[in-house]
């Protein structure tokens, strides 16, 4: 089984305008930075991006905001981005805010083939407006739907040619759920090895969920809040 494509440009070449994308990462940690660069080179427009955050002004999804390629963000927290704020206030950008656990689980349910689930997050708040509720064991829950997305773009540490993936550290975050959830899943990795080179016990995402894999050309791995203690 060979899922390898030559590079990021090849991996994203058929993503059309107005596509719904899932993009892995939490903050700038574990984001598919090479694929984002390729989407900018391609110039695809009107994107809906399901991603926990929207990057910063000059990195991550923030770069696609600068080029006005994003129509809508579906996120849990979008704080750190001046261009984001400008586009939101001017009405150029639509934003749907979702509790983080609900966001993660809506991705997960899409990958598990389950159309909806019930969560207590947001009961009694404006998030609940218009949503079906049910009471289980005396507690109220909201019905939330699995996401539908055209492409999921994830970043892993190591992958093999068959698309099996291993993540590293907290760069795992939303990547495993999104990898399972895309109609087409694109994985970029720091290290690409032959099929059979990864220990089956250690694979986080099975290649069955991955359609295309490539080794990222370079990883800047920018840090948002560099916090250190004295040694």
């Amino acid at each position: 089984m060979n899922k390898v494509v030559a590079n990021a440009d090849e991996a994203v070449k058929d993503i059309p305008d107005n596509a719904v994308l899932m993009l892995g990462g939490f903050g700038l940690c574990g984001i598919p930075e090479n694929s984002i660069a390729a989407l900018i080179r391609k110039g695809v427009k009107g994107l809906t991006c399901i991603s926990n955050n929207a990057g910063v002004d000059d990195f991550g999804i923030g770069l696609m905001l600068q080029t006005r390629q994003v129509k809508k963000m579906i996120s849990s927290y979008v704080g750190e981005n001046a261009e984001f704020e400008r586009q939101l206030l001017s009405g150029e950008l639509e934003v749907e805010l979702i509790p983080q656990g609900t966001l993660a689980t809506r991705c997960m349910m899409a990958g598990y083939g389950i159309p909806a689930f019930f969560t207590p997050a947001g009961v009694g708040t404006e998030i609940a407006e218009g949503k079906e509720t049910r009471v289980f064991d005396g507690k109220e829950y909201l019905m939330e739907y699995a996401f539908k997305s055209d492409f999921a773009i994830v970043k892993a540490w190591k992958g093999d040619t068959a698309g099996n993936l291993i993540y590293r550290g907290t760069a795992r975050n939303f990547n495993p759920m999104m990898a399972m959830a895309g109609k087409i899943t694109i994985a970029e990795v720091e290290e690409l090895v032959p099929e059979g080179a990864l220990d089956p016990n250690e694979i986080h995402t099975a290649g069955i969920f991955v359609n295309r894999i490539f080794k990222g050309e370079k990883y800047e791995k920018r840090i948002e809040q560099r916090t250190v203690r004295r040694s």
Binding site: S75, S76, Y77, Q100, P120, A121, V123, I127
Partner: peptide, 15 residues
């Protein structure tokens, strides 16, 4: 004011 989002707060307080 600019809305940044709830992050995980709604999940945490609900559960």
């Amino acid at each position: 004011k600019l809305i940044k989002g709830m992050g995980g707060a709604m999940d945490l307080v609900a559960s």
